[in-house]
Simulated scan of single mutants.
Amino acid sequence: MAILRYNPFAEIATVQSQIDKIFEDLQAQTFKTPAAELTETDDALYLRLELPGVAAKDVDIEVTENAVKVVAERKLENQERTRSEFYYGKFQRVIPLKARIQNTNVTADYQDGILTLTLPKSEQEKNKVVKVNLEQPTA
Protein backbone atom coordinates (compact mmCIF):
# COMPACT_ATOMS: atom_id res chain seq x y z
CA MET A 1 0.00 0.00 0.00
CA ALA A 2 1.38 3.37 -1.00
CA ILE A 3 1.41 6.22 1.45
CA LEU A 4 -0.07 9.41 0.08
CA ARG A 5 0.86 12.67 1.63
CA TYR A 6 -2.13 14.92 2.44
CA ASN A 7 -1.82 18.42 1.01
CA PRO A 8 -4.55 20.74 2.35
CA PHE A 9 -3.36 23.56 0.08
CA ALA A 10 -4.41 21.60 -3.00
CA GLU A 11 -7.97 21.48 -1.68
CA ILE A 12 -7.89 25.18 -0.84
CA ALA A 13 -6.75 25.94 -4.39
CA THR A 14 -9.68 23.88 -5.74
CA VAL A 15 -12.17 25.75 -3.54
CA GLN A 16 -10.62 29.09 -4.55
CA SER A 17 -10.99 28.15 -8.22
CA GLN A 18 -14.66 27.29 -7.69
CA ILE A 19 -15.29 30.59 -5.88
CA ASP A 20 -13.58 32.51 -8.72
CA LYS A 21 -15.87 30.76 -11.22
CA ILE A 22 -18.95 31.76 -9.20
CA PHE A 23 -17.89 35.44 -9.19
CA GLU A 24 -17.13 35.35 -12.92
CA ASP A 25 -20.62 33.98 -13.57
CA LEU A 26 -22.16 36.69 -11.37
CA GLN A 27 -20.29 39.42 -13.26
CA ALA A 28 -21.56 38.09 -16.60
CA GLN A 29 -25.13 37.93 -15.30
CA THR A 30 -24.89 41.49 -14.00
CA PHE A 31 -24.46 42.83 -17.52
CA LYS A 32 -27.09 40.54 -18.98
CA THR A 33 -29.64 42.61 -17.08
CA PRO A 34 -28.40 46.21 -17.18
CA ALA A 35 -28.93 48.43 -14.18
CA ALA A 36 -31.95 50.72 -14.47
CA GLU A 37 -33.13 53.90 -12.77
CA LEU A 38 -36.75 55.08 -13.02
CA THR A 39 -37.71 58.60 -11.95
CA GLU A 40 -41.25 59.99 -11.95
CA THR A 41 -42.48 63.58 -12.18
CA ASP A 42 -45.99 64.95 -12.63
CA ASP A 43 -45.63 64.97 -16.42
CA ALA A 44 -43.31 62.08 -17.30
CA LEU A 45 -41.29 59.05 -16.35
CA TYR A 46 -37.53 59.07 -16.97
CA LEU A 47 -35.82 55.73 -17.48
CA ARG A 48 -32.03 55.40 -17.52
CA LEU A 49 -30.22 52.17 -18.40
CA GLU A 50 -26.50 51.38 -18.24
CA LEU A 51 -25.31 49.84 -21.52
CA PRO A 52 -21.50 50.13 -21.42
CA GLY A 53 -19.70 49.07 -24.57
CA VAL A 54 -22.89 48.77 -26.63
CA ALA A 55 -23.11 50.75 -29.88
CA ALA A 56 -26.31 52.75 -30.41
CA LYS A 57 -27.03 50.79 -33.60
CA ASP A 58 -27.13 47.58 -31.53
CA VAL A 59 -29.91 48.80 -29.21
CA ASP A 60 -33.58 48.07 -29.97
CA ILE A 61 -36.27 49.78 -27.88
CA GLU A 62 -39.99 48.91 -27.81
CA VAL A 63 -42.40 50.98 -25.75
CA THR A 64 -46.01 50.17 -24.92
CA GLU A 65 -48.35 52.19 -22.72
CA ASN A 66 -47.23 50.33 -19.61
CA ALA A 67 -43.80 48.76 -20.29
CA VAL A 68 -40.43 49.32 -21.95
CA LYS A 69 -38.47 46.51 -23.60
CA VAL A 70 -34.79 47.02 -24.41
CA VAL A 71 -32.87 44.47 -26.45
CA ALA A 72 -29.16 45.07 -27.04
CA GLU A 73 -26.01 43.27 -28.06
CA ARG A 74 -22.40 43.83 -27.10
CA LYS A 75 -20.25 42.58 -29.96
CA LEU A 76 -16.75 41.23 -29.73
CA GLU A 77 -14.46 43.57 -31.66
CA ASN A 78 -11.09 41.89 -31.23
CA GLN A 79 -11.02 38.17 -32.01
CA GLU A 80 -7.47 37.82 -30.66
CA ARG A 81 -8.28 38.16 -26.98
CA THR A 82 -6.76 35.70 -24.57
CA ARG A 83 -8.79 36.32 -21.43
CA SER A 84 -11.79 38.54 -20.88
CA GLU A 85 -14.24 39.13 -18.07
CA PHE A 86 -16.55 41.11 -20.34
CA TYR A 87 -19.90 39.68 -21.34
CA TYR A 88 -20.51 39.56 -25.06
CA GLY A 89 -23.81 38.68 -26.65
CA LYS A 90 -27.48 39.62 -26.63
CA PHE A 91 -29.59 40.50 -23.63
CA GLN A 92 -32.98 42.01 -23.00
CA ARG A 93 -34.84 43.69 -20.18
CA VAL A 94 -38.54 44.46 -19.82
CA ILE A 95 -39.39 47.17 -17.32
CA PRO A 96 -43.02 47.62 -16.23
CA LEU A 97 -44.04 51.24 -15.78
CA LYS A 98 -45.91 52.75 -12.83
CA ALA A 99 -48.15 54.93 -15.00
CA ARG A 100 -49.62 54.80 -18.49
CA ILE A 101 -47.59 56.79 -20.99
CA GLN A 102 -47.95 58.28 -24.46
CA ASN A 103 -45.79 55.74 -26.24
CA THR A 104 -45.91 57.75 -29.50
CA ASN A 105 -44.10 60.72 -27.88
CA VAL A 106 -41.14 58.93 -26.26
CA THR A 107 -37.71 60.48 -26.79
CA ALA A 108 -34.34 58.77 -26.36
CA ASP A 109 -30.80 59.95 -25.73
CA TYR A 110 -27.71 57.73 -25.69
CA GLN A 111 -24.41 59.09 -24.39
CA ASP A 112 -21.41 57.44 -22.75
CA GLY A 113 -23.17 54.07 -22.43
CA ILE A 114 -26.23 55.52 -20.68
CA LEU A 115 -29.61 55.25 -22.43
CA THR A 116 -32.10 57.87 -21.22
CA LEU A 117 -35.76 57.59 -22.21
CA THR A 118 -38.26 60.38 -21.57
CA LEU A 119 -41.70 58.81 -21.32
CA PRO A 120 -44.46 61.44 -21.19
CA LYS A 121 -47.49 60.42 -19.16
CA SER A 122 -50.85 60.05 -20.87
CA GLU A 123 -53.35 62.85 -20.28
CA GLN A 124 -55.47 60.47 -18.20
CA GLU A 125 -52.54 59.93 -15.82
CA LYS A 126 -51.73 63.64 -15.59
CA ASN A 127 -55.30 64.53 -14.65
CA LYS A 128 -55.78 61.61 -12.31
CA VAL A 129 -56.92 62.83 -8.92
CA VAL A 130 -57.79 60.48 -6.12
CA LYS A 131 -60.06 61.71 -3.34
CA VAL A 132 -59.40 60.27 0.09
CA ASN A 133 -62.10 60.36 2.75
CA LEU A 134 -61.16 60.42 6.39
CA GLU A 135 -63.58 58.61 8.59
CA GLN A 136 -64.20 60.26 11.92
CA PRO A 137 -64.12 57.88 14.86
CA THR A 138 -67.49 57.54 16.53
CA ALA A 139 -67.47 58.22 20.22
Rank of each mutant, 00 (worst) to 15 (best):
K126P: 08
T64M: 03
A35N: 07
D109M: 08
Y88F: 15
L115N: 04
K126L: 11
P96K: 05
T104K: 14
L51F: 00
I12C: 02
P8N: 01
L26T: 05
F86P: 06
E24F: 09
L45H: 04
N103D: 09
I114A: 07
L119F: 05
R93K: 15
E85K: 15
R93T: 14
I22P: 00
Q79G: 10
K90H: 04
R74D: 07
T33S: 09
V106E: 06
V71K: 11
Q18H: 05
L51W: 04
R81P: 02
L47T: 01
V129G: 00
P96H: 06
N78F: 11
D42K: 09
Y87P: 04
V63I: 10
V94L: 10
P96R: 04
E40Q: 13
K98I: 13
Q18P: 00
Y110F: 12
T116S: 12
F86K: 15
R100S: 12
N103T: 01
K90Q: 14
A67S: 15
Q79I: 13
V130P: 01
E37V: 06
D60G: 10
N103Q: 09
T33R: 13
N78G: 08
K98Y: 12
Q27G: 08
P52N: 03
K121I: 01
K69C: 08
G113Q: 05
L115W: 04
I95S: 06
K98T: 15
V59M: 07
K128F: 06
T118Y: 00
K32G: 05
I61S: 02
N78S: 11
K126H: 08
Q16V: 10
A72N: 07
L115P: 05
R48C: 00
E123F: 04
F91A: 12
K131P: 01
R83L: 14
R74H: 05
Y88H: 12
I61D: 03
I61K: 09
Q18L: 06
Q79C: 00
K98V: 15
R81D: 11
A108C: 10
I19E: 02
L51H: 07
D25E: 13
V68H: 02
K21A: 14
E77M: 10
